[in-house]
Nucleic acid binder design. Sequence first.
DNA 1: ATAACATATGAATATATGTTCATATGTTGC
DNA 2: GCAACATATGAACATATATTCATATGTTAT
Lengths: 123, 123
Amino acid sequence: MENEKIECKNCCTCSAENCPHSKVDENTLYDLAELFKVFGDSTRIRIISALMDGELCVYHLSERLGAGQSAISHQLRILRSAGLVRPRREGKEVYYSLDDEHVEEIYGAGLAHILHKGGHLYE
Amino acid sequence: MENEKIECKNCCTCSAENCPHSKVDENTLYDLAELFKVFGDSTRIRIISALMDGELCVYHLSERLGAGQSAISHQLRILRSAGLVRPRREGKEVYYSLDDEHVEEIYGAGLAHILHKGGHLYE
DNA sequence: ATAACATATGAATATATGTTCATATGTTGC
DNA sequence: GCAACATATGAACATATATTCATATGTTAT
């Protein structure tokens, strides 16, 4: 699976398996909703955003986000189960980093929408 | 805003405003979480998936998803507020369609992750 | 082994959210 | 105007979820 970019927009003629216009079964749609649910929390998206600059240990994440250690740890577990972040133990600390480039692609695609619409979504 | 594709992955040298590595303020991160929250519900992602084939009225969406008319209508309102779908009245019916190409990009980026990981996310 | 520190986890609680039911609004044809 | 139909909306209820607190696990140094 080399090229994961989507090649078509509305053409529906391409055969890329991740073309959004190709039929997707219900189970995959359910998984997709679960994935976006993981992105859909401000603490988790802030963690993702922080890790975009490079790996960070739990304590530094906690410090940077101004959130409790337990809260961060709980959210990291969710991010880990979804395959979005990866832990690396070094002594007492555990350093987390983004798992793969899809994370940045999803984040960037969402960001493009926000910046395009501009202003706050909800009145 | 012509080219909304993300040009860099880990380079951090590009200047695209939607490069995920450029600093994003807290308010934007909050909006981003709200946006993904909208994608993070199975009913809404199924609506989006259904509209990928073209516009549909509320009744047909309701029928296709096997969900109540009220539930669909409530979810369409959320999708509308987020700027993801657009209504078009034609007589008694209201036809909904995807608002812009970002919807497909976000959906496709998420789908790529799911297909890449394979299998179900949560044990 | 024990102390000190970093992280993970379980239970409890408070809040958010999706669906349903009932009803309101809007549109068409008579 | 009125009936019939399509959609939207508000309230109520049930479920999901994020945070906190307390505690367990894991690591290092003495």
